[in-house]
Amino acid sequence: MAKQESVVNLVGLLSVEGQDLAASWIEEVSRSLGRRVSAAELERELRELYGALVEALRQGAVDVHSEEMSEVRALLTELSRSRARKGFSPTETAISVFALKRVLEPVLRDGSSGAVQAYLQLGKILDELGLYTIETYTQTRDALITAQAEQLLELSTPVVRLWDGVIAVPLVGTLDSARTQVVMEKLLQALVDTGSEQAIIDITGVPAVDTQVAQHLLKTIVAARLMGAECTVSGISPQIAQTIVALGIEFDGIVTKASLADALKLALRRSGVDTVVKEGGLR
C-alpha cells in the first residue's frame, strides 16, 4: 500500500494540473546549453524522455535499472551519444536530467509531506539517471577517441609508390606497437595491390626505436619476404644505430641504408633498372 501511494505521489508530482512542466524543463535545459541544440531537437528529446519517465513511474518503477525504465534508459543513451558527438561536456549532458529537479521545486510550495517525500524520492531517481547519462556519455567519448586514434594511425602511415615495383613507407614521429602493426598491415596489403617486389621502410623521421618496435619491424620484413618482396630499411640515425647495438638487436640479413635516396637506388638496381648519377641528381 505504501509503495502504491509513493507511486501516486511521484506521478502526481510530474502531472501538476494546469502546468506544463515539460515545457519549463525544456526552457531550463535550453538556457544551460546556450541554445546550442536546436529548439525542435531539444523539444523532441525532452518531451519523449518526460513521457517515458511518467509512464515508467505509473508502472511502479523506482529502480532505474528495472524493465519498466528500459525506454527511459534507451532515450538517455541516445541523448548522451548525441551530446558526446557534438562536443558537449559531461556536465552539460547530465544537466539535461538534473534540471528537472529545479523545475519541480516550485511544486513544493504547498509544503505537504507527501509532496516533499515524492520530490526526495524522484530526486534520487533523477540522480541515478544522471549518473547513467554520464556513464553512457563517457563510453561514447572513449569510442570516438579510439576511432579517431585509429584514423590518425592510418593517415600517419602512408604507403607511397616510388617506381614500378617499388613502394615505400615513410615513417615520422614516435613508433609504438600499435603503429608498427598498422605499418605491417598496410605494407603487406600494398605489396599485393601493386605487385611490387621491392619495399623501403624509411625511419628518417623516427626519433627513437626500442626493442619491441625493432622486433615488429623485423617481423614486417620477414612477412614481406614470405610474399616474395625484399625490404630495405633507410634513414637509421646515429642515435638509433647506437640504441640497436646497445640493445643487442640483430639485423643480420637485412639491408640498411643511410638515406631514402640510397635505398631507392638499391631497389631500382634490384628491379633491373639502370641508374646513372649525373650532375643535379639521379637519372
Rank of each mutant, 00 (worst) to 15 (best):
S237G: 07
A241H: 10
I240M: 10
E197C: 07
D252S: 12
I203M: 10
I244M: 10
A241E: 07
A208M: 15
A224H: 04
V213H: 02
I240E: 02
L217S: 06
P207M: 11
Q242K: 12
E250I: 08
E197G: 13
G235C: 14
V233H: 02
E230C: 12
T256N: 04
E250Y: 09
L260W: 13
T256Y: 07
H216W: 09
L226Q: 08
K219D: 01
A229G: 08
M227N: 08
P207H: 11
I240N: 06
T211M: 00
A208V: 15
P207L: 13
S234L: 06
V222M: 07
V213N: 00
I201R: 02
I201H: 02
E250Q: 11
H216Q: 12
A246H: 14
I236K: 07
H216N: 13
V245K: 05
A208F: 15
L218W: 00
E230W: 12
A199N: 00
G235R: 06
T256G: 00
K219I: 11
C231F: 03
I254L: 02
I254N: 01
L247C: 04
T211Q: 00
I221P: 02
T211P: 00
Q212F: 14
T243S: 08
L247D: 01
A224Y: 03
Q239Y: 15
D202W: 12
S237Q: 09
E197S: 15
T211N: 00
A229P: 02
I203F: 10
A246P: 05
G253R: 12
D252V: 07
A258H: 13
V206D: 01
A241F: 03
Q215I: 13
E230R: 15
A246E: 10
I221M: 05
I201D: 00
V255Q: 13
A223Q: 04
R225M: 00
A224C: 05
H216K: 05
A258K: 14
H216E: 08
G253F: 12
D252H: 10
S196M: 04
Q198M: 13
S259Y: 12
D210T: 13
I240P: 06
C231V: 14
L217M: 14
L218T: 01
I244T: 14
V213W: 05
V233F: 07
L226N: 04
R225Y: 04
I249F: 03
S259A: 12
A214S: 14
A258W: 09
G228S: 03
A199H: 01
I221R: 02
I236F: 07
I244R: 05
V209W: 09
V206I: 14
A229V: 13
A229S: 09
E230T: 15
G205W: 00
I254W: 02
T211V: 11
S196C: 08
E197Q: 12
Q198F: 12
G205H: 04
A229T: 03
S237E: 07
V233I: 15
D252C: 02
I254Y: 03
T232E: 04
P207K: 14
Q242G: 09
T204H: 09
I240D: 08
T220I: 06
T256L: 05
V245I: 15
T204L: 11
V213M: 04
V209G: 09
S259V: 15
A258D: 11
V206A: 09
I249S: 03
E250V: 13
Q215P: 05
S259R: 13
A199T: 04
A241W: 07
S259Q: 11
T220Y: 02
